[in-house]
Every structure is written in C-alpha cells, then in structure tokens.
Amino acid sequence: MSAFSAIGEEREIDRDEYTPDIEPQPTWCPGCGDFGVLKALKGALPEVGRTPEETLLVTGIGCSGKLNSYLDSYGFHTIHGRSLPVARAAKLANPGVEVIAAGGDGDGYGIGGNHFMHTARENHDMTYVVFNNEIFGLTKGQTSPTSPKGHKSKTQPHGSAKTPIRPLSLSLTSGASFVARTAAVNPNQAQRILKEAMEHDGFAHIDFLTQCPTWNKDAKQYVPYTDINESEDYDFDPTNRADAQELMRETEDKLYEGEVLTGVYYRDDDRPSYQQEKQNLGEMPDEPLAERYFDGDYEWERSYDRFIDKHK
C-alpha cells in the first residue's frame, strides 16, 4: 500500500481548492500578468485531475516566486534560478507527484540558464512556466535577458547593448520536447496549453508573456495576439522540428516589432522522458524511491554483504 494516498486519488476537484485561506489575495500589482498564470493553473489542474496534495509547485525568486503563496499545493519556493534542479530531483524521487516549476525570465533564462538548458536536454517529465515580462520586477525594473535591445533602465541608462535571448529557440535546441508560448491576456489558450503541457510526458516549457504594468509600461500588453495553431495565416505542424525552428525565430523577432505570436510550437510525443530513459538503462527503480522509506518490509542491503569480500 502506498504511503502517499493523495497520489492517483480519483475525485472531483474544485478549482477553489487551490486558493489558500492564508493569502487568497495576491499582492501583485493591479493589471499584472502574473494573475493570468495563477488563473490558468487553477483552471488546468482540475482538468488534468491533480489535487493540491499530489502537486508540487517549485518556484524561484521574484514576483513569479510568490505564485507558491497564492496557489495551495505542496510548494517549494527555492532560490533564484534553482527551481529546476530541485524540481527534477523531486520528480525522480517520486514520479507519481505532478511537478511544476515556475520562475521569471531573469530566473530561468539568466541566472538559471544552465539548469534550463540541461533540464530541457534531459527531458524530465515536468512542466516549466517562465513568466516573461521582459524586465526584473521585484528589484524594481532592471533590464532582463529578454528586454529588447536598446531598453533603458536604471542599470542600463544608455540602453541595453545586448540582443535579447531567444527563449523558444534555446528551448528547442536544448532538447525540450514540448515548447509553447502563451500570454496572460489570453486565458483560454493559456489554460489549454498548460493542460497539454502537464499531460505531456517529457519536459514541457511554456514561455508565458506576463505584462508588467509597473516597471515595463513601455512594453506592449501583448495584444493583439495571434494563435499560430488556430490562425488561418499559419499552416503549421508543431511536430515538424524545422518548421518549429523557423516560426520560433520569426515569433521572437516579431515580439519586439509589436506583433505577438503564441501557441504550441513544438511537441515530440515519441521521445521517452528522462525517467523512462533511466529506467530502460537500469539506472532508476521501477517503484518510486520515496515509497521505500515507508515500507517496513523492504530488505535494505548491507554494505558488508556486498563489498567486504573484495577488500579482504
């Protein structure tokens, strides 16, 4: 019998279950795009049938990191840029838990860029939501890795000399098996994409455009947007890597020209997740490792029996 009865429990789930009594009202600024992520998550989690106690939400630091305070589940609010390594070990330790990681664009594409690249490469079965507002919010408006070239801020008074990072292209090149972009202003699409991402067996990366009305007033509110999966202007197959690559590049360029393209850009449903790869190699147990520590009947092997003879 499992020590984790929340996992796999079949029951109706009300989206209000995800609203904590302690902090039902987020402290984000009025008009902040982060509300859009919270709403989409509260909508998508019941749809995929995951209760608060079988969900682990792992966040980084920044306005996005406060998501944990406003979404009731098991939560781990980690440190700046490090949500992914914590989250992927959690998934390896107990694959039955739904693991979602979240953070901002500075967190995921800047300080945590190395982890992003490698988590995508390894294709861990988890969802990663990057709140992309093209700015550092909680530290009051510094230029971020996705700020447009020329962006002026207190720390770049003459404008940024740097070309912004290409989050979708980077994700695809690194190995993510599901890559999407959505926007806070498009709640229905956001909820649908989040649901697809959670159902996907592999690393699902969502670049979530979250407008910052306080520190990035100059930036677009990400409207109007085009859904590339539904627009008649785009005849697009997200399982075709070459097409995805081309359209990602176009999307990244157009964002800075005022045109917002969103949708699922790439998905590879055939690629095994990291857990499956590791299990196929005999490098990971079939039963969740976390269960073993609650199993009074498990026979723990002794080093003496396994190793002592070779030292004699």
Partner: peptide, 12 residues
C-alpha cells in the same frame, strides 16, 4: 509531498 493532509510551503 504526496501525503494526504501534509501540504505546506517550504521557502528560503
């Protein structure tokens, strides 16, 4: 995580 009745927030 995964235990019923155990949810909490771990934070730095």
């Amino acid at each position: 995580p995964g235990q019923k009745g155990g949810r909490f927030l771990a934070t730095g």
